[in-house]
Design a binder for these strands. Structure first.
Lengths: 109, 109
DNA sequence: CTGTATCCTTTACGATACTG
DNA sequence: CAGTATCGTAAAGGATACAG
């Protein structure tokens, strides 16, 4: 029992455990267009608080979905970016985007 | 202002609003293999309580993702099923399943 | 069996103050 | 700027009892 985490046997449960909450989904959405600073992420997800954004970024870093790069400047700059692994989520989000557009058309009718 | 719902302009935000929580994702996962009774869904998602399962099923029915069919028998039987719209989520879950399997392989190494 | 209603607990979240 | 720490609130969720 020296595993990093208890992994559910079901692959869908696995991905839900990693990105199955709306904040992480929003964060990934925004990072798919390139690396972002902390403040940029806040702007892109206005409803999220600083604390919750930090929490989710830390968890995603821990899980290997994103990387965090600190530039030792004054004032400090921190860039968040999808890891190679995180970037493999792109096709899923492409499908979600298409689906979302379709749904929007449906309800507008 | 006679819309069914306020729709976020971003398609990804739209789909997150509809299925962006783990319970709904689990429910869809289970319904992708065919219609299920209430009790079957509970068995498939052991961590969910009756109350929360009901809440999410009602919301998903409202959003047109699933259908609910009551058979007037004794004891009563209720079948939940993906709607045509809900079934169009299938490709997304196919990708998620593949991704989850890959992640499982990664962390086992 | 498939719920609803109620109460209670736990968790998520927000607001504020403060720091390197 | 990008956090951390603390505290208070709101929302989510669980347990139980009960009904059609």
């Amino acid at each position: 029992m020296i595993q990093k985490k208890e992994l559910p046997p079901c692959p869908v449960a696995t991905i839900i455990g990693l990105i199955g909450n709306k904040w992480k989904l929003f964060i990934i959405r925004d990072l798919l267009t390139g690396s972002k600073r902390f403040g940029e992420l806040r702007k892109g997800i206005p409803e999220i608080s600083q604390k919750v954004l930090t929490q989710n970024l830390r968890a995603m870093e821990e899980d290997g979905i994103i990387t965090r790069k600190v530039y030792p400047e004054v004032p400090p700059r921190v860039e968040y970016e999808l890891s190679d692994l995180g970037d493999t989520l792109r096709p899923i989000f492409d499908l979600m985007r298409v689906w979302g557009r379709n749904y929007q058309k449906l309800v507008k009718e």
